[in-house]
Design a protein around this nucleic acid. Sequence first.
DNA 1: CATTACCTGCAA
DNA 2: TTGCAGGTAATG
Length: 275
Amino acid sequence: MPELPEVQHAADGLGAQVVGSRIAAVTRLDYEPMVETPPVSDFCTALAGREIRAIGRRAKWIVITLDSGLTLTLHLRMSGSLIVHGPGEQPDKYAHLVLLLDDERQICFHDPRKFGRARLLDAAGLAALDQAHGVEPLSAAFTLDVLIAILRRQNRMIKPLLLDQTIIAGIGNIYADESLWRACIHPLRRSGRIGRPDAAALFDGIQVSLREALLNGGSTLRDYRNSYGRSGSNQEHFNVYDRAGCPCPRCGTPVQRIVVAQRGTHYCPQCQPPP
DNA sequence: CATTACCTGCAA
DNA sequence: TTGCAGGTAATG
């Protein structure tokens, strides 16, 4: 579920609540595959007693900087959320990882599908995580010329390209569809055949879709909640995502749903002409 | 590039 | 009961 806007919002909300707090202990870890590295016992030991210095985001990873020099990184995958519980509040059965803070609050990694992952990284591990991902689409490094270079160099179907985290980081199925609709580009078009005007429209479409979602607190289809346990509202602003059969907001043509790269894909057959 | 697997809940 | 879901890694 969570894509860039949801992960950013989750990270911001978590940071506002727990930066400066200290992790007393890991009090629950009932699904060990969630921790990819280091071994679970080391993971728990290294977290105990550490102060949270900062919380940010890289791609779809939440990045938690600790006072030990290590960095806790969390990926929400499809159904994860991070919620701060008050003292004594009992986490439900989906809270597979719980960090108890020294003021008795608890950071709960809630994830019904158990796809979420955690890594505790040293500086080299953090650098490797960074290098494994592409440009941040809301950063100054992402310019129209950078996007055009990507489109030319890759020359593959535009939708799978947008979903490839090693090229551009943070776009997922929702915002790929929404960005392409804004740019009037068909999801099957080859990126190498997208000219400068369409690339400029895509550049704007990506940034507008992501920024709007961020302002709306992200999109909640089923599981996503922010760090206060609240849903986002951006799903009320979808133009095409999850709206098969509904009228296109621009021209009224019914939105079509096809499958591209094994993902449900929504577009307007009138505004986004086939290649 | 396509397919499958990882998990569970929920809607059809 | 079946199929589908915001993501990604591991296979042919």
